[in-house]
Design a binder for these strands. Sequence first.
DNA 1: ATCATATGGATATAAAAATATCTACATCTT
DNA 2: AAGATGTAGATATTTTTATATCCATATGAT
Lengths: 212, 212
Amino acid sequence: MGLFSKKKSISVQTIRRLPQYLRVLYDWHGYGRELASSTELAQETQVPPIVIKKDLQAIGAPSKMRAGFKIKGTISAIENFLGWDNLNKAFLVGAGHLGAALLGFSGFKNHGLEIVAAFDTHPERVGNEIHGVHVYHTAQLKSVIEEKKLKIAVLTVPGPAAQGITDTLVACGIKAIWNFAPVKLAVPPDVAVQQEDIASGLAELCAQLKRK
Amino acid sequence: MGLFSKKKSISVQTIRRLPQYLRVLYDWHGYGRELASSTELAQETQVPPIVIKKDLQAIGAPSKMRAGFKIKGTISAIENFLGWDNLNKAFLVGAGHLGAALLGFSGFKNHGLEIVAAFDTHPERVGNEIHGVHVYHTAQLKSVIEEKKLKIAVLTVPGPAAQGITDTLVACGIKAIWNFAPVKLAVPPDVAVQQEDIASGLAELCAQLKRK
DNA sequence: ATCATATGGATATAAAAATATCTACATCTT
DNA sequence: AAGATGTAGATATTTTTATATCCATATGAT
């Protein structure tokens, strides 16, 4: 064992389950509860207790033998692991239906995300506010990003426009893109892209339906 | 080998990749192209060629040795596998921001889904049309489902309302629920539920960002 | 004080998914 | 006509992820 301890990588599946645990833990914490066992969490989340145990161990959640995991400490551990303990300034490109819906979703502040600006090219949208967020013209991307020190991009533009906007974002130094356009983006290796493809979920549902 | 050939189950990951292939294939088919190799598809989708090969083999896509997969036949194979070759009548419960955005998304008709009704409880929404879809009061769920022979439910209600609505849907005989509420639904085993949790994707992005 | 019990911790096993390797063959080039 | 090449097909291997098993321990009941 050398100086550089090999950091055990945490699986994508584990990461995707963490917000689910977090919601239940917030709830219980609100009721003043202090401890929760993996079996109790399992009942609420329908995730097997062994999986929960392993997930929470992986991120180093504090626990009490025989009694379960400490709720407050586990919340902190998850929030810290995800960086949700302080807000990242984000912006949205493409203020269409989906974009507007995301701007109206108040829950992001609990998830480390604060959307403080929006961009679009449609004249009837530019200059207005949507759910309290000002809509700039896309041409102003660079200046506003620098001025407001924005870090995370939420992409809700039509597919054909996505790669072009992405190139601009990369040129502006953006390192994280949450992409709702049904297009695989090409980016340098130091830029994180999270692809949301609504069709994948629908495909899963339809495949389930066909099997039954 | 007996009478009952064991149907090899197709992995969830494969199913989630199929729509991605489909988009590229539609595009190429539109240009009159007839054959596509897994390496070419790999370039476009950023999915490794071996994975593509295995996925397409799994659903029995037709191919030509040395030349690749037949585009038209592969489109048919994917559409057939997902049941996207004929439209399922669907409805949406909860015509808020997200619900309205989904109603405005025209792409579902290419994905076997036709949303023909919406439901809500807010008086200012009931009776109106959103993107051409009529909004009924939630109390009318049962009668409208039966009258219009609706099959698939899209749930975009607030979390606390989700389980109650689900119980009603199950009582109405609905067998497929696409759930956008951040709640795990309890349903009988013959009902398919697909959970969409926007927080999971955000968690993935934030975890990536922290690593870099 | 003693014992039963439910839990996290650690390890081992199994299952699923991704990746690599090799073969046969149809097409193209020469 | 002969050979090189890039492909699907089949199989094997590795990696990842999920699940099971056993153990030590803190808690609560007796």
